[in-house]
Simulated scan of single mutants.
Amino acid sequence: MVVALDGFLDAGNAGAIACRHLAAEGADGVVVATFDVDQLHDYRARRPPMSFVRDHYEAYDAPRLVVRLLRDTGGTPYLLLHGPEPDTRWEAFCRGVREVVERFSVALVVGMGSVPMAVPHTRPIAITHHANNVELLTGTSPWQGELRIPSSAQALLEVRLGEWGHDALGFVAHVPHYVAQLDYPRASLALLEQVELAARLTIDLTELGTLAEEREEEIGRYLAANSEVGDVVAALEQQYDAFARAEESGSSLLAEDQPLPTGEEIGQQFEQFLAGLERPDETGGAG
């Protein structure tokens, strides 16, 4: 079963885009389980959209948290759990997922997520691997020691499934923080490539790859027309490469003599960056 919940761990809408791609490739599939969203969703914190047409309300987009039965390109069946992350009753949600796992004899649960990081879009997407069983890990983690982080329903689910004897692992894509508020299909592509390997599924990623290339070209055009933002990206590239060299040599990750921008400089430049991508400009930047 593949899991991707909208909300906390979804920088660049990577998980949501990946889910839409899976649903489209699997002809949407049939819904085999649903959750009572009224017991899980904070409507005032995340107000669902609806339409007002001339003189009346219509087209209310009610939030749905569902499990679909899909098939990959080779006909292998799998489940997809997707929808908004529960705002409340996380333990009850985990018990509900456990019921689905046991009823459908799910052998492996694979989670997808993404977080904003100070990395350049011109380098490979880094992936953090995690699992409730060390034998499931398909890659090494760059993190050393312990990190205290905000929890999520999806992370708690992995912990609880491990306590109940069910295997679960996941992948978190590192999305450049300056595009974290935009759709970033390149991260979705990286996540689904990991899902293919871990779950032994075959997924047609051609369309998603095309979308990723189009977004990269759009970002490249904007950077070419805005040298100040390009300078900040270049500094991130230097930082990324310095870390990569340090890891390869086994030396300290603290690189010396690397000119890096201040937090204030990054914030100012990327506010302009996001604004430029959201509307056309005179230099031919993308909308």
Rank of each mutant, 00 (worst) to 15 (best):
A198V: 02
S152K: 05
V195F: 00
A224D: 12
T138W: 03
A118C: 07
Y178K: 04
A212D: 05
L161P: 09
E214V: 05
V134G: 07
D183G: 08
A180R: 14
N133M: 08
E146R: 14
T128K: 08
A212N: 06
A168M: 02
L211Y: 10
L156P: 01
V175G: 11
A168R: 01
E207D: 05
Q144E: 15
E146P: 06
S188G: 06
V175H: 09
V195T: 06
P185T: 13
I149Q: 11
E218K: 07
G162F: 03
I203W: 03
P185S: 11
A155D: 10
S188L: 05
Y178M: 09
T210A: 14
Q144V: 13
G162N: 05
I127Y: 04
A190V: 05
V159K: 09
A180I: 03
L169H: 04
L192N: 06
H166R: 13
L201F: 03
I203L: 15
P176H: 13
L161I: 13
D167G: 00
Q181P: 00
P120I: 13
L191W: 07
S151A: 15
A198R: 03
R215T: 02
G220F: 00
E214I: 03
V195R: 03
E217A: 14
A155H: 07
T138K: 11
T138V: 12
E216M: 02
T122G: 06
A212E: 04
G170Y: 05
E146V: 15
L161W: 07
L161Y: 14
T210N: 02
E218R: 10
P150I: 07
I203E: 01
A153T: 12
P124N: 09
E217V: 01
E135S: 15
H121Q: 14
S188V: 13
T140V: 12
A180L: 11
H129N: 12
H166E: 09
H166Q: 08
H129Q: 12
A198E: 02
L147H: 14
R160G: 00
V119Y: 08
L136W: 01
Y184P: 01
D183K: 09
E146D: 12
L189W: 15
F171G: 10
Q154H: 13
M117H: 10
A199L: 03
E214A: 11
N132C: 04
P124H: 15
G209M: 02
Q181W: 11
F171Q: 11
A224Y: 05
A126F: 00
T202G: 11
A212Y: 02
T202F: 04
R186P: 01
N132S: 07
E207Q: 08
E163W: 13
L223Y: 04
H129I: 00
A180E: 10
I219D: 00
W164A: 06
A168C: 14
P124G: 08
S152G: 10
V172M: 11
H177A: 11
L191K: 13
Q181F: 04
F171E: 10
Y222G: 09
W164S: 09
G145K: 09
H121V: 13
A168P: 02
L189E: 12
T128G: 10
G170S: 07
T202K: 12
G209R: 06
H166M: 04
E214R: 04
D204M: 01
T210G: 01
G162K: 03
T128N: 13
E217Y: 03
A212I: 01
Q154D: 11
A187I: 02
L169Y: 06
